[in-house]
Amino acid sequence: MAKKRGHGEGTVYKVGRRYRAQVMVGGVFHRAYFDTEKEALTWLAEIRVRAARGMLPEPSKVTLGEYLQHWLENGARHTVRPWTYVSYESRVHIIPELGHIRLQALKPSDLEAFYSRKLQAGLSRRSVAFLHAVLRRALGHAERLGLIDRSPAGRVEPPRWNAPQARTLSPAEAARFLEAARRSEYYPLFVLALATGMRKGELLALRWSDVDLAEGTIRVTRALYRVGGRWVEGEPKTAAGRRKVVLPPGAAAVLKEHRVAQLEARLRAGADWTPEPGLEDLVFTSRTGKPILPRNVNRALEAVLRRAGLPQLRFHDLRHSHATLLLKEGVNPRVVQERLGHSTVSLT
C-alpha cells in the first residue's frame, strides 16, 4: 500500500519486507529501497533539499568522475572524519582511468579490470582494496540517492590482503624496550604509548592543556594525522575514544621532566620556534615546535627495537602491549577497555 504524500513530495511503497521510495524532481525520476519507512521518508526529504539547492546532477548524463567530485564535496565531507575525507580526496586518481564512464553505465567488470591494472602496475593489494572501499562507499551513496539502481562495487570482490598480525611485548621485553628508548629523543612519547595505550594520532595531538600533572591524568580529546602533505586534526576514532586516562607515577614523572626540557628547548630555539598555527601547545614537537611527523616516530621506533634486540613491531603494537600487560596483572577488562577508548570489551 502506497504512503500518499503531497504533490512533488514522492511516494513510499511497502515491497515485501522493504520500503521503496520514489519521487519525480525536475522531470527526473529517482527511486531507492530501504529497510525502514523512516529511512525512506528521510531519503525523500534529502532528495528535495538537494534538488532545491541545485546539488543533484542529471542521472542519465553524469559521469563517474563528475559524481565522485560531487560526492566528495556534498556527501563524504560531512559524514566521515577529516583525515578519512582527505584520504578519500587523495584517491580521486580513480578519475583519470574511470572518470569518463557514465555513472549509470559503470559495470562490475569495469571495476575488476581497473583493480587488475592497478595491481599489475605495482600498487599493493592493500592500496587497491582501499580504492575499492572508496568506490563502494561512493557508489552506495549514489544508489541511496536513486542515481543508480544498484552499486556495481557491491558485486565485485576486492583483492585480498593479509593484515599484519599484532605482536605484544612481555613484561621483560617492555622493560628492555624502555631502557633502550632512553637514548631516543622520543623517549617520553614511547613511555606514554606503553603506559597509556594511546594511539599514535592521539599522542601527536596531545596538548599541555589536556594534561593535569598534579592530578596525574590526561584527557584524550582529539587525534592528529599527516595526510596529503597537510596536518589534519579531528575527533578520536570512536565516541568512546574521548576519555580520561590515569598516568602511572613513573610516566607522570617522565612527563614532568619532558615539560621542563621542552621549555628549555623553546628558549634556546628563540625565533626558530615556529609551531603550526592552531597547534602551539603540543606536548610532543620537533626541535622547532612543529608537530612530529609520524614517519619520524616510526623510524625512531625501529631504531629503539634494534638497540633493544627485539623483533620489529608497529607503533600500534605498543597499544596492544599496554592492554596485554594490564590483563596479565589481573586488571578488569572493563577498565582496560575504558583506558583504550574501545567501544566494547570484545575489541580489547
Rank of each mutant, 00 (worst) to 15 (best):
Ala300Ile: 07
Ala265Val: 10
Glu89Thr: 08
Val336Ile: 13
Glu157Cys: 02
Ser60Lys: 13
Ile94His: 12
Ala214Glu: 13
Val49Arg: 10
Leu41Val: 00
Leu41Ala: 13
Lys328Glu: 14
Gly341Ser: 01
Tyr33Gln: 11
Leu178Arg: 00
Val128Lys: 10
Ile94Asn: 12
Ala21Met: 09
Trp71Thr: 14
Ala323Cys: 12
Val92Asp: 04
Asn74Phe: 08
Gly27Met: 14
Ser321Gln: 03
His78Pro: 03
Gly309Asn: 13
Ala251Glu: 07
Leu263Lys: 06
Pro291Phe: 07
Ala195Cys: 03
His322Ser: 06
Gln104Phe: 03
Thr285Tyr: 14
Val220Gln: 04
Tyr13Ile: 11
Asp272Tyr: 07
Gly197Ile: 04
Ala261Met: 13
Glu338His: 08
Thr274Asn: 13
Arg268Gly: 15
Lys118Ser: 09
Leu206Thr: 02
Val49Glu: 15
Gln165Asn: 03
His132Ile: 10
Leu206Glu: 13
Ala45Ile: 11
Ala129Pro: 08
Ala51Leu: 02
Ser151Asp: 00
Ala181Ser: 09
Ala51Phe: 09
Pro96Ala: 06
Glu264Ala: 12
Ser87Ala: 12
Arg295Trp: 05
Glu58His: 05
Val245Leu: 01
Arg50Phe: 04
His78Glu: 15
Gln22Gly: 15
Asp35Arg: 14
Thr36Pro: 03
Ala253Ser: 14
Lys237Val: 15
Val23Trp: 13
Thr348Leu: 02
Arg339Val: 08
Pro311Ile: 02
Val232Arg: 02
Asp212Gly: 09
Gly289Tyr: 01
Arg20Cys: 05
Leu98Phe: 00
Gly229Leu: 15
Trp71Asn: 15
Ala252His: 00
Glu39Pro: 04
Met55Ala: 12
Phe190Val: 11
Arg339Met: 00
Gly54Val: 08
Ser321Asp: 02
Val335Cys: 10
Trp208Pro: 03
Thr344Val: 01
Gly75Asp: 04
Met198Lys: 05
Ala271Gly: 01
Ser170Pro: 11
Gly146Leu: 09
Pro159Glu: 13
Ala172Asn: 03
Ser170Leu: 10
Ile95Tyr: 01
Ala133Met: 13
Pro275Cys: 02
Ala121Asp: 15
Gly54Ile: 02
Thr238Ile: 09
Leu325Ala: 10
Ala265Lys: 04
Lys3Cys: 14
Ala105Met: 01
Arg314Leu: 06
Gly140Ser: 05
Tyr187Phe: 15
Ala308Thr: 01
Glu264Cys: 06
Phe284Ala: 07
Gly250Gln: 09
Val260Lys: 14
Phe177Arg: 04
Val86Gly: 07
